[in-house]
C-alpha cells in the first residue's frame, strides 16, 4: 500500500461537514448549560423580587399568624437553630468516629466492606423514609412525641451517611507517610489518629459537616412526617418542646391558596437560601484554603 501524499488518499473530504457538526455540538452544549443556569437564576430572582418586600424586622421577629401582614418566622428561625445545634451534637461525633474506625482501625475485610456498602446505601434512602422511621421509633416507640429531639434524631440518621462518606474521603487523603512517621516513633493507632490524621483531615471533615448540615436545614419531608407541621407560636425552651422550622413554614405558606402567603413563603425562602449560601460559601472557602496549604 502506497502512503498518501497530499492528494490521492482513499478518504473522501468530509471535513467541512464534520467541523460544522463539531461547532454545532459545542454551541448546543454551551447553550444548554447557560440556559439552565440562567433559568434557575431567573427563578431565584423572581422569588427574591416577590419576597423582598415582606422581608423586614417585623417579619423576622413575629410568630406566624392568620394575617399575612402580622406573620413572621421567629419560631421557625429559632426552631431551625435549635435543630441544627442538636443535629450537630448528635451526628458529628458518631459520624467522624465511624469514618475514623472504617478508615484507620478496622481490618479491610468482609465486614468493613459490608459496613461501607451499607453506608452508601443509607445515603441513598429517600428522606421521607427516614421520616417514617423517625415517626415509628422516636415519636411513637420512644414516646419522645413531636419534639425537637425527635426531629434532631431523625435528621441525624439522615445526614450521618453524608458526613461519614465525606470524612472518610478526607481521612483517606491524608498522606500515608505522616502515619508511618508517627508509628515509627512508637505511637499507637489512636495516638497517631488523634494527633496527626484527624488534624490533617480536619478541613475536609469540616467541609463535609457543613454541607451535610446545610442539607439538614433544607429538609422538609422528615419533619413533616414526625409531625412538625403545627401552629407554633412560642419559642422552644428545651429539646423536649414542640417546634417548627423554616422549610416547614415555607411549605405551610406555599400550600395556602392566597397570593400573600406565597409572597411570605418567598421571603422565608430568601432567609433560608441566605443561610445556606453562607454555609456553602464557608465550605468552599475552607476547601480552597486547605487546597492552597497542600500546594
Amino acid at each position: 500500500m502506497q502512503k498518501s501524499r497530499v492528494s490521492g488518499t482513499p478518504y473522501i473530504d468530509n471535513l467541512v461537514a464534520r467541523r460544522r457538526k463539531a461547532r454545532l455540538f459545542r454551541t448546543l452544549c454551551a447553550g444548554v448549560t447557560w440556559l439552565g443556569v440562567v433559568l434557575l437564576g431567573l427563578l431565584l430572582y423572581q422569588a427574591g423580587v416577590d419576597g423582598i418586600k415582606w422581608l423586614d424586622w417585623q417579619f423576622l421577629s413575629s410568630f406566624p399568624s392568620r394575617f399575612p401582614e402580622k406573620s413572621g418566622i421567629k419560631s421557625a428561625l429559632f426552631g431551625t437553630l435549635w435543630l441544627i445545634a442538636l443535629i450537630a451534637i448528635i451526628s458529628i461525633p458518631i459520624s467522624v468516629a465511624t469514618a475514623l474506625y472504617l478508615q484507620e482501625f478496622s481490618s479491610k475485610g468482609r465486614i468493613s466492606r459490608l459496613i461501607e456498602l451499607n453506608i452508601s446505601n443509607l445515603a441513598g434512602v429517600p428522606s421521607i423514609v427516614y421520616g417514617i422511621i423517625g415517626l415509628a421509633i422516636f415519636v411513637r416507640g420512644f414516646q419522645l412525641e413531636r419534639s425537637l429531639i425527635s426531629g434532631a434524631l431523625t435528621m441525624s440518621l439522615l445526614i450521618s451517611p453524608v458526613i461519614i462518606i465525606a470524612s472518610r474521603e478526607a481521612i483517606k487523603s491524608v498522606p500515608v507517610n505522616i502515619r508511618h512517621a508517627a508509628y515509627a516513633l512508637g505511637a499507637t493507632r489512636w495516638q497517631t489518629s488523634w494527633s496527626h490524621v484527624l488534624p490533617a483531615a480536619f478541613p475536609g471533615i469540616l467541609t463535609g459537616v457543613i454541607l451535610a448540615l446545610s442539607r439538614a436545614i433544607g429538609e422538609t419531608a422528615p419533619l413533616i412526617m414526625i409531625g412538625a407541621l403545627t401552629y407554633v407560636a412560642f419559642l422552644p425552651a428545651g429539646p423536649m418542646d414542640a417546634f417548627t422550622a423554616l422549610p416547614i413554614q415555607i411549605f405551610n405558606w406555599v400550600s395556602r391558596p392566597q397570593q400573600e402567603f406565597h409572597e411570605l413563603a418567598a421571603a422565608a425562602i430568601i432567609v433560608l437560601l441566605a443561610v445556606l449560601l453562607v454555609m456553602n460559601a464557608a465550605a468552599i472557602y475552607i476547601r480552597h484554603k486547605s487546597e492552597q496549604k497542600l500546594k
Binding site: M1, P10, Y11, I12, D13, N14, R18
Partner: peptide, 17 residues
C-alpha cells in the same frame, strides 16, 4: 481514525494491513 475521516474502502483489509 479512518472511519471518522471518511475512509470508504473495506475496513477489514486496512485493519489487517
Amino acid at each position: 481514525g479512518p472511519q471518522i475521516n471518511g475512509y470508504k474502502q473495506p475496513l477489514d483489509d486496512l485493519v489487517e494491513h
